[in-house]
Write a protein that binds this DNA or RNA. Structure first.
Lengths: 188, 188
DNA sequence: GTCTATAATTCGATAGAC
DNA sequence: GTCTATCGAATTATAGAC
């Protein structure tokens, strides 16, 4: 990988962390440049605007989610175990969720109020997760019901993540995931 | 009511709307002053800082929620109907939720990443709603289980509101509320 | 390709006339 | 109490040397 991509990647990763920990709006280019150890003026060699950095961050998160889901498929041949595998990694992130919320959820909340391309890009990530859940339920033979089950699961996860952030209580995720696993047993 | 309070109230209401439709961070004092039809320099006669306006907005939303809940109690003597009454008014706001999300949820998402007083104030509103749900379930004789049921209900609402915003689809709320009402029948 | 210096603008906040 | 005018800091973005 060329030196060029190295700096570009460092900028994207720094932006990704800061946008998650703060918000897109309150994250400045100076913040990003400092964290990536790249001079401020040089940022514009790699990105034309601040929005372009956000697009790259969204793209990075989308790819990261995709590899997480692919890894789950390889690790768990059994579909129900696969979903439980997803829930487990979600539980493992409960401490950071209590600090900053769900990375996908908080992005959709902020960009959802925008109009135009950026709002749509964030929604695509959420949709990718919903579609993956839907595929799992179809594999379990749930047919037409799969989309409703997928939306319910996604909604439960996002709701729990928001309450976890709001009350700054990692145990909220742990308790809610117990409910979800129970729901999985009976409904799916 | 004095002229003083009239202007102050107009500023709070304008700020309330703008913070909901945009975010706190991206709402400027100039935006607020313009919408309230108050000269920018005059804002500082009523509020010392921008944060002070936010505090007043949070207070206003807290009071608004409290009166909504009180009104439900007066309108519906039957507890289950009372909860369904809450869900119905939630459904009625599905179009604006698809545009801007849940007013409480989006505030908690943004302020939850802060540290200090403001984060706590937003959490108090969410907690007020949770406590009200808990009270309803206790009235239904659910005892110790009431807090878990309340958190599940709150979580479902918030998750559905976020998906409604993300996918810009008011029907998401309508479908999810069907699920919740069904859950109410069996679990509560 | 890299980086310093700085332009251009915006925003929160203040001074001070009325 | 009210409002105009403006300051100072912060922020996005650019110019131009190396």
């Amino acid at each position: 990988m060329s030196r060029k991509n190295d700096k570009r990647d460092r900028l994207i990763e720094a932006a990704n962390d800061l946008i998650y920990q703060q918000t897109f709006n309150s994250t400045t280019l100076a913040d990003i440049a400092t964290k990536a150890d790249v001079p401020l003026g040089n940022v514009y060699y790699y990105f034309k605007t601040k929005d372009d950095i956000l697009k790259a961050v969204v793209q990075k998160r989308s790819v990261a989610l995709q590899s997480q889901l692919t890894a789950l498929e390889e690790k768990f041949p059994n579909t129900k175990e696969r979903i439980r595998g997803f829930l487990n990694s979600w539980i493992e992130s409960s401490d950071t969720t209590a600090q900053y919320g769900c990375d996908i959820g908080s992005l959709c909340q902020e960009l959802g109020k925008f109009t135009g391309e950026l709002s749509h890009l964030a929604a695509e990530i959420m949709n990718r997760l919903q579609t993956w859940f839907e595929t799992q339920f179809k594999t379990l033979g749930k047919g037409e019901q799969s989309i409703v089950l997928a939306q319910h699961l996604l909604s439960s996860i996002q709701g729990a993540a928001l309450l976890t952030l709001t009350f700054k209580d990692p145990n909220m995720i742990k308790r809610q995931s117990k409910n979800i696993e129970q729901w999985l047993e009976t409904a799916a």
